[in-house]
Design a protein around this nucleic acid. Structure first.
Length: 203
DNA sequence: AGTGCGATTGACT
DNA sequence: GTCAATCGCACTA
């Protein structure tokens, strides 16, 4: 028995806040659980960013396309896309069906399957396994196969409740954007060492 | 059909 | 601190 076996109680869709920004904040302290043939991988969400309706930095801004289709699914579905040709990004759709918006999961505190993640990433330091959206997806073996998956159902990937209380949440501007750079839509577990970005954005 | 450009990362000065 | 890698897609024509 491990000392801290994580709980995998799936979050029901009805529990998810209907608003994109509220959902981004709500997801801090929840779990991402990935079921693979090799076993379960999981982590605690410590950093998110909201891309609400009307946000010029959001992929849904110019309307629905084949790529961003999953953003228009009802809240709680995975939107997975490739950035810079190298890094997969995991998002959670966040509004009613037909409305395009989402929350980017930017960092996890690894919990279950750490050895597998270390192997997958070729990295030993637990802090570096899922600190950053691209690393996170690589650690959990997330790519286009999971685009459109319902995260409120048992399957290859879902979101679960944590046994611990939600951490204190900090708010800042988002990272890596060229538009809408001043909006305070990034949420993070304050002081948590698995949060990405500069120190100034982790107070 | 051609072009530009990322919601990043890792290697390197 | 700088910078290239690398791919799919959206946009233009």
């Amino acid at each position: 028995m491990t000392a801290a076996t994580p709980s995998y109680e799936i979050l029901a869709r009805g529990e998810l806040p209907v608003d994109t920004v509220q959902l981004a904040r709500y997801l801090i302290g929840k779990l991402v659980v990935r079921q693979t043939p090799e076993g379960v991988l999981s982590g605690r969400i410590v950093e998110t960013e909201a891309y609400p309706v009307g946000d010029a930095a959001g992929h849904a801004w110019r309307g629905e396309t084949p790529r961003n289709h999953a953003l228009f699914l009802t809240r709680g579905h995975a939107y997975v896309y490739l950035a810079y040709g190298t890094s997969w990004m995991l998002n959670v759709s966040s509004e009613a069906a037909g409305v395009g918006a989402g929350v980017l999961i930017r960092a996890l505190e690894p919990l279950a399957g750490v050895a597998t993640m270390q192997q997958r990433r070729g990295v030993q330091n637990p802090r570096d396994l899922a600190r950053g959206p691209g690393r996170l997806a690589a650690a959990l073996d997330i790519d286009r196969r999971l685009d459109g998956v319902d995260l409120c159902h048992d399957g290859a990937l879902w979101i679960a409740r944590d046994v611990h209380d939600a951490p204190e949440v900090g708010i800042s501007t988002r990272i890596g954007l060229s538009r809408e750079t001043d909006r305070l839509l990034r949420f993070y577990a304050r002081g948590n060492r698995f949060v990405s970005g500069p120190k100034a954005l982790n107070r």
